[in-house]
């Protein structure tokens, strides 16, 4: 039995669905992590791996939010600094979230992986369509006293594409 089979079997057991549903009904799971003092969220399935203690190799001719590459298991991964992208502040990431992408190798620098949380769908707010300031996010929810933005990986990758021309 594979890990996926086991998970499917566990999910099918009585009682499990209670944890996944809020009083209002539907809920969603998010991987929450910190970058400096800010929290961000991603769908858990979009993170393939968390790695630490890797050197960043600087690259020329990239936007400031691309500090360089990491060598993750022998494969170069483009590193994004969310701190630079969203706050224009330099940071030294302690860990890297390796994204689960079908056709690219990308990692987000992060300070700490916080937890995978189940968030009631009703508490997730979205942004008005066409709001340029929120184009990198798909939603926002309260968690641990913060408003946590949910990152849109496609939009962040598109930003790099636009900036590289």
């Amino acid at each position: 039995m594979s890990a996926e089979d086991i998970v499917r079997a566990i999910e099918g057991m009585p009682g499990q669905e209670v944890q996944e549903e809020s009083a209002a009904g539907e809920s969603l799971r998010f991987f929450i992590f910190s970058v400096g003092d800010a929290y961000f969220a991603l769908p858990p399935e979009s993170v393939r791996e968390i790695v630490s203690d890797l050197e960043i190799f600087p690259l020329p001719a990239c936007p400031p939010y691309i500090p360089g590459l990491i060598n993750c298991h022998g494969t170069p991964h483009t590193v994004f600094s969310l701190m630079v992208l969203f706050r224009n502040e330099r940071d030294t990431p302690a860990q890297f979230l390796v994204l689960n992408l079908p056709d690219d190798h990308v990692a987000f620098g992060c300070t700490e992986a916080i937890e995978i949380a189940t968030i009631p769908a009703a508490s997730i707010s979205t942004f008005p369509e066409g709001d340029a300031g929120s184009r990198h996010f798909t939603g926002l929810f309260p968690f641990s006293g913060q408003r946590v933005p949910v990152l849109s990986v496609p939009e962040i990758l598109r930003q790099l594409e636009l900036d590289l021309g």
Binding site: H77, D104, L160
Partner: peptide
């Protein structure tokens, strides 16, 4: 040798940076 990640490959190639080696 390793090729650059897809998102930056074309941009680096235009500047002559074709591959990496650790």
């Amino acid at each position: 040798f390793r090729l650059p990640p897809r998102g930056i490959k074309a941009s680096l190639a235009r500047r002559g940076l074709m591959a990496f080696r650790f």
